[in-house]
Simulated scan of single mutants.
Amino acid sequence: MVASSLFSLLFLLLIISLFSTALTSMHGLNDHSLIQQVVSYDGHDDLLTSAYHQFSAFKEKYNKTYLTQEEDDYRFGVFMSNLRQARRNQILDPTAIHGVTKFSDLTPSEFRSQYLRFDGQTQLPKHLKTAPILPTNNLPPTFDWRDDGAVTGVKFQGYECNACWAFISIATLETAHFVANGQLVDMSEQQLLDCSDECTYDKRICNRGCQGGNHVLAYRYMLNVGGVEATKDYPYTGIDGSCKFDKNKIVASIYEFNDIIADEDQYAANLVEYGTIAVEVNGDALQTYTGGILCPPCVDTYNHGVTLVGYGSDRHWIIKNSFGTNFGENGYYRLCKGRLTCGKNPVAAFPLSA
C-alpha cells in the first residue's frame, strides 16, 4: 500500500515536472527560481522536493487533511499551480509579497466561490444620501482608526460562508458607535446572516446569508429594525439559521448611511471625519497575498467587501479583512492608491450611529 502510494506520488511529480518544463520554456520562467524566490523552504534546492516539503509544511500549519491519497495528490497539483500563480503575481505586483497562504490548495474558482461571492454594484436605495464633498488639503499624512481603539479584532467569516457583506456592515457600525458613544462593542454579524433579507427594488440583489449580500442593504435592514445585538448575545456560527433577533438586546443603532462619490481623496476625507468605510474590491490576488502593499492591475470586477480603517504616508489603504488573523498582515492588508475606483459605480459607504 505504501509502495503504491509512493509510486503514485512519484508518477505525479514526473508529470508535473514535464509540464513545468514545457510551460517555462514557453514563458521564459525558471521554476527553480520561481519556487525559491516566492516561497523558499529551508534551503532545499530541488524544485519538486522543495515543493513537496512546502506542501507538507502547509498541511501541518493549516491542519489540512484529505480523505484519500488521490485527493492529496490532486491538492498537491493545485498547490504547485498556485506557487506558479504566486510567482506571476509577484512579477506583476513587486510591492507586495506573494506566496503560500491558507488558500494554496484551492483552485482559483474554488477560492472565489468559497470566499469572494459578493453582490456589488447594487441599485442604491432611494434614501441613501451622498456624503457632502469635504476639503482634502489639510488631511493628516497618515491615519489609522486602530490607534484610537475604534476597531474590533479581525474576525473570520468561515469556510464556505460568503458573509463579507455582513462583516463590513458590522465593522463600520462598530467604529461609528465608538465615535458617537466612546465605547467599542463587538457586534453580531450572525444577526445579519439570519435576519437581513433586504432586496434591491428590482429584486435583482438580496441579502442571502452565507450565499452573499450587500452592505448597503444591511444598513437599510439595521435602520428598519432599530439596530443590532452584541456578539456575546448573538454569537457567530458561520451558517445560516433562523432569526433570533431580540430588540431588547440592541447595543447600537444607526440613523443614516451615506455613499461617497468615487474619488479616493474623498474616501480619505470621510474616513478621517466619520469613521471606517465599507468598500468593494477585486479579491482575486488575495489568494496568494502574504504581506506588503498589494497593487494588482485595475479590473472592472468587484467580488469582495472589506473595511478601510486608515491610510499610509503614500496614501496606500490599510484594510481590515474577514479571513481571520492568519491571513496577510495579522488579518489586514495594504492596497495601493487608485485601486478602489477601478470599476464602474463602486459603492463606498458608512453608517452614522446614534
Rank of each mutant, 00 (worst) to 15 (best):
K102G: 04
L134I: 00
S109D: 15
Y115M: 03
F58M: 08
E60W: 04
L134A: 10
K59N: 13
P135G: 14
Q121W: 01
K102M: 06
A86V: 06
D119W: 10
F118K: 02
T122G: 12
R117K: 14
H98M: 08
Q123F: 01
N137M: 14
F79H: 03
T65E: 09
S113L: 10
G77M: 13
Q85K: 09
F79D: 06
N82W: 06
F111L: 03
S104W: 01
I97P: 00
K59V: 00
E110P: 09
E60N: 06
K64C: 04
G77P: 05
S104V: 05
G120I: 07
K126V: 12
F76D: 09
T130P: 00
V78A: 08
R112H: 13
R88M: 15
V78W: 05
D119H: 14
N63P: 01
P135L: 12
H98N: 10
F103P: 05
T95C: 00
R84P: 06
L124A: 12
F79S: 08
K61D: 00
I91N: 09
L83Q: 09
L134C: 03
F76W: 07
E110V: 07
D119E: 13
R88A: 14
L83W: 07
H127C: 06
A96M: 11
D119M: 10
Q69K: 03
Q121D: 13
P135D: 13
N63Y: 06
A96P: 02
T130M: 05
F76Q: 10
A86K: 01
F103A: 02
Y62F: 07
T130G: 00
L124E: 11
G99S: 11
G120N: 03
E60Y: 11
I133G: 03
T65K: 11
L92E: 15
S81R: 11
M80G: 07
V78F: 04
I97T: 13
